[in-house]
Write a protein that binds this DNA or RNA. Structure first.
Lengths: 298, 298
DNA sequence: AACAATTACGGAATCCGTAAAAATT
DNA sequence: AATTTTTACGGATTCCGTAATTGTT
């Protein structure tokens, strides 16, 4: 059995290369490190160091040990935060999402959600999804793909459907549905933070131009004083800021896009072991999901 | 930073369910465990236990912590043996094999091999191969498949070629090469420990019968006093025991089998990081590998 | 009464810091 | 002379065991 503080001393020595610097880095005195490393060698029954009168260095074994010990310490650290996150999750759930759409949905739903629940407004990547669940950093994560592993599963919540908002007097605006193909060659003003939709529209609309706008306020201004078409979804308006309210009256008509690629399935992933805990919430989310309707009629 | 002995106490408590039994299991007294678990809760800043006056039990968080802590302890243990194995390997290499053939080769070669080298005469499985290398349990492992991962690579050493030994006066015995097809329907006496060859002969020779014999001595006896054909390879005789010597004079002639499946490539796998250390030995093994010859002529 | 956990107290181990020594650059 | 490691010594922490306390079964 090796005590953790010895591993920490070894790892810092490997970085500092001298006992004195190691001691400084760990806020202890030099002899402490001398003794610690001697003890570690005893406990492991292995020669970790080459010793010369005023020079000490790692043997090949010592280098391997330091390298491996660092992994152990990292594992310990993730262990600690995992446990702490888990206790936190016992009475307070955190929801994350890889997509912006669900953020709007959740914000809008805020009043009806239980109090022991927080929404992380920063998007996470798909790559982080499993880790965040396994570390209990998040209890529920929205994404547009199903996850099925030994310890994680997903529940289909509903679809997010793309809507294009066209100037009222355009001839294409006079219909209840529209296809990507009919939008060929047009120029769109697009909010930068539209997540997975970016790839969808870029690959589905031939010869289109997309003017990406990172600022929501500026986006609202431009749409108001121009005739550029823009996109929204059944989960829009994106939020309840002034910008969003301005969009209510922008001289455009929202037309749902009928292509299948304009219908994005939305899943919520969670730890299988937590299924019982999150099931009621999942049901609530499913029930509250917007029906497949077009843009609010005006 | 969590000290290891606290994790060990937690893990044993999870198994023993009471502080008293935990103390007994760890050869300490009960109050030691009480204080240890209190300290662990403080260090983790998490409630691990539900406490009633004379009853203590793990919370959900505590159960998770115990489960995860056990993994950490296991990792620590493999760390320790890995380091110890590595130091051992610094001045003493261990060779293992998944196949019996190379064992014979190595035994025969024993005199010419360097002294700081041991051959493990117990076969290992292919599944164990990577682990044994990564734990530095073995430095070189013979197998009939190449391994190419981030940290492991293989070197082709040579082929092991199957030979069938037929009674001298059989009509098939009067040729320098033979095919599996020509052995159709025959009955063979086969040593049980032939490794991967078992599948080869079973699937390649139609309607054959194989009389498996686990004992080498009995195998020699049977071959001596019967006309059953048997198999050997360019690495045979299997060893230098009495049984093998008896085979020198058994009234049979060894005929190499020409099918490609009768030529098994033999690789040696090792840690990429150890390439420089093992390279001279690999060269020696390649050089000493038997040329593709038939059974010793008699 | 028996059992289980906690608390109190004293001792023992060990872990640490200061100071001194040894050896190299 | 300055730097680095090791050893020696004393103190302080903490870790442990015994014994007593509390509360339940």
């Amino acid at each position: 059995m090796i005590e953790t503080y010895l591993l920490e001393e070894l790892v810092t020595f490997a970085k500092q290369q001298t006992l004195a610097k190691t001691a400084t880095a760990l806020n202890v005195t030099q002899p402490t490190i001398t003794r610690g490393m001697q003890k570690l060698e005893q406990d492991l029954n292995v020669q970790l160091f080459d010793r010369q009168p005023n020079r000490i260095s790692l043997t090949a074994t010592g280098q391997l040990a330091a390298q491996e010990a660092e992994k152990l310490l990292q594992d310990q650290q993730t262990f600690i935060t995992k446990i702490q996150n888990y206790e936190q999750s016992q009475n307070h759930l955190l929801i994350e999402t890889t997509l912006p759409g669900p953020l709007v949905f959740l914000t809008h739903l805020n009043d009806q959600l239980p109090a022991n629940l927080t929404v992380n407004r920063d998007l996470i990547t798909v790559a982080q999804l499993s880790d965040h669940l396994r570390n209990h950093q998040a209890s529920l994560i929205f994404s547009n793909q199903e996850v099925l592993t030994a310890d994680i599963e997903s529940r289909f919540i509903g679809t997010e459907n793309l809507i294009v908002n066209l100037q009222k007097f355009m001839y294409q605006a006079n219909q209840s549905r529209i296809t990507f193909h009919e939008l060929e060659g047009m120029s769109f003003i697009v909010l930068s933070a539209i997540g997975a939709w970016k790839q969808v529209i870029q690959s589905a609309i031939p010869n289109a131009k997309f003017l990406y706008q990172p600022e929501r306020m500026a986006f609202a201004e431009i749409t108001k004083y121009s005739d550029f078409p823009y996109f929204s979804t059944n989960l829009s308006p994106w939020d309840s800021t002034v910008a969003a309210r301005d969009l209510q009256d922008d001289n455009r008509v929202g037309i749902p896009i009928s292509d299948t690629s304009a219908h994005m399935p939305i899943y919520v992933s969670y730890l299988t072991s937590q299924r019982a805990n999150v099931l009621p919430l999942l049901n609530q989310l499913s029930a509250a999901w917007p029906a497949v309707i077009s843009h609010p009629q005006r």
